[in-house]
Amino acid sequence: MTRFVLGRIGFYTLIAVLLAFFTIPLLWLASAPLTSDPTYEVRVPDFTFDNFQAILEHPYALPSLYNSLLLSVGTALLVVALSALAAYALSRVRLPGRDALLYALLLLSSIITGTAAMVPLFQLAVELGLIDSQLGLILILSGGLLPAAIFMLKDFMDSTPKSYEESARVFGASPLQIVAHVVVPLVRPGLATIAVWAVANVWGNFLMPYLLLSDVEKQPAAVIMYTLYTEGGQANLRLLSTFGLLYSVPVVLMYLFVSKKYGFRFHGGIKR
């Protein structure tokens, strides 16, 4: 009995420590923006809005959030559209070596990450005149996300019965009509998952925009965050914490919205 109680106490202590480890930074993020002179400690805030005032006056802060939105939504749309078409084709058409191709794509894209391919990508962007262009960045980010997106979506497509499409086909629907009327609605939860995943990926990506966008007016929030210093070269905790909070809110809202609407089912489409 004593052993059981001690074991329980030990277990809950461990849980508490782990919980604190993850909660304290979040508490800091919630309290520091409302504190007039934040430090690295978590303190009870004095509920000032001066920090928000300061971030609003910062010339690049709000535009950078807009840039982040533009980049992530643009990339998500491109990735969803292209991966849906590719995954549908790969799921329904038997090609010799199809699975090998998919695995190779996935493997290569996860080994040769953006970081590893940074120099050639930069070179490529320069040659194509896509340096310092948000469109160029969207294309490059999409390229990086597509293999994994196709792989995930193909799984969704595989699990939807073919008879839906065959039925539409017998009624005379063209392949594009079948995709639009039947396949896309059936795999909508999958498409939503891919979209959220792509947005979150681009939203948090620092390296690619840092490398490829030199104009500060085009840079997204993740890059602008890096520039929030005081005149003394110290991290400006007032701006950093406030900007950090603003930076996280849209992603959290998106998760809540999509989770409510689609429930993040990872398989099956809609089944009767």
Binding site: P161, E166, S167, R169, V170, A173, V182, L186, K271, R272
Partner: peptide
């Protein structure tokens, strides 16, 4: 199939959910 002027009921009915 669409040009054959036939209609088919599938085993699982294939009603669009």
């Amino acid at each position: 199939p669409g040009g054959r002027d036939i209609a088919m009921v599938f085993q699982d009915y294939a009603l669009f959910p």
